[in-house]
């Protein structure tokens, strides 16, 4: 789940300066859960833009709007509305902004309507927390399933600094120290020895941006495609 929060309406208006006809894109997945790009929020944005003298040529909520193929398919039905617009406002995360740029045939400005947050675990409805930084080299096996890269404010790999107090991090008395969480969990699992080996620095070559993942046909379809099939 990718979290996002709406940019202020003033910021959105400022970004749309000089563009009067807009097409809006929402997302039926993460941005719907975060209430930044669900149908109601998109409609409310439409009304507010119209109140401020803009024309909204149309809108669509795609599930999910980060899927270029899906967008292309669904954009067909609203082609005219997109053609008629000066620009597109994407009310979803940065991935959706990129996907919309890749999916629309027309070259026109595409504006982000939100600030994208993090890959989050859903604690309960409307409550999300970052637990993984998507580092490309997972070490959860050795840390009791709690990620020091993410849960320790300094991303330390070899155990805590001297900054923990009452289980909290030096950075913020409200913030649990990630390494205390790891220490306690490994203790309960009787696996404290996992804290002992020297852990090498992270391989940031694996973090070289932008990252890409391309599955082979075999991975995608379960077996090698042959010409006979």
């Amino acid at each position: 789940m990718i979290t996002s929060t709406s940019k202020s309406f003033e910021t959105v208006l400022e970004n749309l300066k000089g563009e009067n006809k807009l097409f809006l894109v929402g997302c039926g997945d993460c941005a719907t859960i975060c209430k930044t790009g669900d149908e109601d929020t998109v409609k409310a944005m439409k009304a507010k833009l119209e109140e401020n003298g803009k024309t909204v040529t149309g809108w669509i909520v795609v599930t999910p709007a980060c899927n270029v193929g899906k967008l292309r398919k669904e954009f067909k039905a609203v082609k005219q509305q997109i053609d008629d617009s000066d620009s597109i406002l994407v009310m979803s995360c940065g991935l959706c902004v990129a996907a919309v740029i890749d999916a629309v045939e027309q070259v026109k400005p595409v504006h982000p309507g939100t600030d994208t947050g993090f890959g989050g675990e859903t604690i309960r409805f409307g409550q999300f927390t970052e637990r993984c930084s998507m580092c490309g080299e997972c070490i959860l096996e050795d840390t009791g399933g709690i990620c020091p890269v993410t849960m320790c404010s300094k991303g330390l790999l070899n155990g805590p600094c001297g900054g923990y107090k009452n289980g909290k991090c030096e950075v913020d008395p409200e913030l649990d120290c990630g390494w205390m969480m790891i220490y306690e969990r490994l203790g309960k699992l009787n696996k404290l020895d996992k804290m002992e080996p020297l852990r090498k620095p992270k391989n940031f070559a694996k973090w070289k941006r932008p990252r890409k993942l391309v599955l082979t046909d075999e991975q995608k379809f379960g077996k090698k495609k042959t010409t006979n099939e």
Binding site: S153, K154, G155, L156, L157, N158, G159, C161, G162, G163, E170, V171, D172, L198, R199, K200, P201, K202, F204
Partner: peptide
């Protein structure tokens, strides 16, 4: 040493590096 977190200081908006931790720096 690891070093105090940047938010403890007077450039709270700085990027913390922590490419290495203190153990890795020693190594």
């Amino acid at each position: 040493l690891t070093g105090d977190h940047q938010v403890m200081g007077d450039h709270k908006d700085a990027k913390g590096v922590y490419d290495l931790d203190s153990v890795q720096l020693l190594a």
